[in-house]
Amino acid sequence: MSRTMLFVQRELAGSLRARWFLAYSAVFLAGGLLLATFGMGDITVYGFRGFAKAFTGLVHLALLFVPLMALFPAAAAIAEDRESGALEYVLAQPVTFGEVYAGKLGGVSLAVLLSMTLGFGAAGAVAVLRGVPPGLVAILYAFVVLLALVFVALGLCFSTIAGSRARAVTFGILVWLVLVALGTLGVMVAFVRWGLPEQLLVTWSFLNPVEAFRMGVVSALDADLSLLGPVGARVAARFGAAGTATLSGLSLAAWVALPGLIGWRLFRAHG
């Protein structure tokens, strides 16, 4: 077995042994099941069902839980080992920095993925049984996974930079707050106050991984994005539903790659 896989295994097992991680997964599972069971009307009108409202619940659940669930173990992964001296000892073994970093990234990602699959699989099964198109659930799951990976990569990057676990986690939560709510609120306030150009709203919606996630999911739900008002409709007219989803996916992928790369380089430079 390769050394990277050894680190992946070790990190994965470590994450899964953490009690809070299991608790978080359980809450996520319960929340998803509750929403899928009670969060949407069962009424089919002339064969029509709408899922926008039910989906809003799932999207919000995902935005509240997924990033934090990914952030905590990732932020701890390097900083904690550095604090305890374990990192120095591990790096003193015949391994490369890349192997250690990849192991951390892979291990935490797998743990988070497992937890997502458990929660979303169960909630998705209920939702699909209750008439939600499976494709919609699958797309939501795909975007949730991407979102989770974004925050794993960010967390690990902070973990590399920050002096301690506590600081990495604190920084992670701050960034989460900005990405998830404060940033967008700021953009909204700025728009109301100074009338930002529309392009800036669109740019923010694609650049912020949390909003990109929302754009992607909504484009799967509502092909012409009329849910997102006139600007949303213009986005749909310009890129199409598939284009919007692809752009969102690319933005999320960039948010995985960039912090991943930055973290790795910093890790290599400073240990």
């Binding site: 080992d81 073994q93 015949p94």
Partner: peptide, 25 residues
């Protein structure tokens, strides 16, 4: 081979630690 001043924190048992680091090397 390296012996630091402070033994690293290792989440697991004695046997696991031996297994992990021997496999690593």
């Amino acid at each position: 081979g390296y012996v630091p001043q402070r033994a690293p924190h290792f989440d697991g048992s004695f046997a696991e630690m031996i297994e992990f680091f021997t496999r690593l090397r």
